[in-house]
Design a binder for these strands. Structure first.
Ligand SMILES: [Mn+2]
Ligand SMILES: [Mn+2]
Ligand SMILES: [Zn+2]
Ligand SMILES: [Zn+2]
Lengths: 148, 148
DNA sequence: TTGACGAACAATAATAATTATCGTTTACTA
DNA sequence: TAGTAAACGATAATTATTATTGTTCGTCAA
C-alpha cells in the first residue's frame, strides 16, 4: 500500500508557489497557527503559539514572515499601524487615505468618499461614537515610483 | 489705561474648564502647537515643536497630555493604534468595531454597517485597494462597567 | 539523488516607542 | 495667601520592532 507524500502539505506549498515564497517549515506552522486564531493577534501572540510547535523559532522570523505575508496579501493588517500614535486637532468630519506602500496619510472629505454612514445601534449593543474610514491603496507618488 | 489680563488665554482656559483639566502652560502650548500642525503628527513630532517654546518640557508630559486630550475628545486619534501590529487571516470582507476604552476589536459584516463605500477613483489619483472601516465606540462590557 | 547557491533562519544586539517612578513644582480652592 | 492634589521633569524601565551576522535549509539544475 502506498500513500502519496505531502497530502496535507500541498495547499500550503501551492500558496507559497503562488506568492513566490519558499515553502519553509516555519512559514507553514505560522500559516497553520493563524488559521486557528480567529481574532486579531499581535506578532507576540502569534509567536507564543508558533513556539509551541517550533520551540527554537526566533521572534524575528515571526515578524519577518508576518510582514511578508501581509505584503503578499496572505494576511491582512487590522487598522493601519503607523509605528507610532498619530493625532490631529482637525475636528471637521473627515476620513483618511493611507498609502499601503509609504504609509502617507491624507485627509478626505466624507462626501468625496461616496459613503453614507448611518449611526445606529450595532451588534452586541456596541455604542457608536464615530466611524473612521481608512481608504487603503497606493498614493500617486508611489504609483509613479513603481513604474519608472 | 487698563487692559484685561489673559485676553488670548481665555478660550484655552475655557476649553480646560469644559473638560475638567487644569490649565497649565504646557497644555496651552501643546494645544496651540497642534493648531499649527495640519497633518497627522506623532508624539515625537509634537514634542519637537513644543520644545521650541518650552525647552525644558519632558517627553513624558507630551505623551501624557496627548493621551489626556484624546481621552477628553480635544484631539483625535488617526486610525486606531493598538500598541502593536494586529493581523488576521480572515479573508472574508468585513470591518471592525473598536472599543475606545479597552481597545477590543470585534468583526462586523459590511452589510450590518449601513455604509456602502463605492470604490472609485479618489482625489490625487489615489489607487484604491480596499476600505477599512473602524466603528469606534464603547463595547457592551465597558458600558456595563461604567455604570455599576 | 545530489551539490551549489541564494534565501531563510536563530541568536542577539540595537533602536524606537511608550510607560512608570519619584522627587519637585504648580494650579486650584478656600 | 496657604494647603493640597494634580501636574511636571528627569530618567529608568518596559515593550515593540528592526538590524546584523554566522549557520542552515529549500530550490533547482545536472
Ligand atoms: Mn486627518
Ligand atoms: Mn477581523
Ligand atoms: Zn505612497
Ligand atoms: Zn471596551
Amino acid at each position: 500500500m502506498h500513500v502519496s507524500p505531502n497530502v496535507e502539505t500541498r495547499p500550503f506549498r501551492k500558496l507559497c508557489a503562488d506568492h513566490g515564497l519558499a515553502a519553509t517549515h516555519q512559514r507553514q506552522v505560522l500559516y497553520e497557527v493563524m488559521q486557528t486564531m480567529p481574532g486579531h493577534p499581535s506578532p507576540e501572540e502569534v509567536y507564543a503559539r508558533v513556539k509551541k510547535r517550533i520551540p527554537a523559532i526566533s521572534l524575528a522570523t515571526v515578524y519577518k514572515n508576518i510582514h511578508l505575508f501581509v505584503e503578499r496579501g496572505v494576511l491582512k493588517e487590522v487598522s493601519m499601524h503607523h509605528g507610532s500614535l498619530r493625532v490631529e486637532l482637525n475636528s471637521h468630519l473627515h476620513h483618511h487615505m493611507v498609502c499601503s506602500h509609504c504609509k502617507a496619510i491624507t485627509d478626505i472629505e466624507e462626501k468625496d468618499l461616496g459613503v453614507l454612514p448611518t449611526l445606529q445601534r450595532l451588534p452586541g449593543g456596541f455604542q457608536v461614537e464615530r466611524y473612521a474610514i481608512d481608504v487603503i491603496g497606493i498614493c500617486a507618488a508611489c504609483q509613479k515610483a513603481k513604474r519608472g
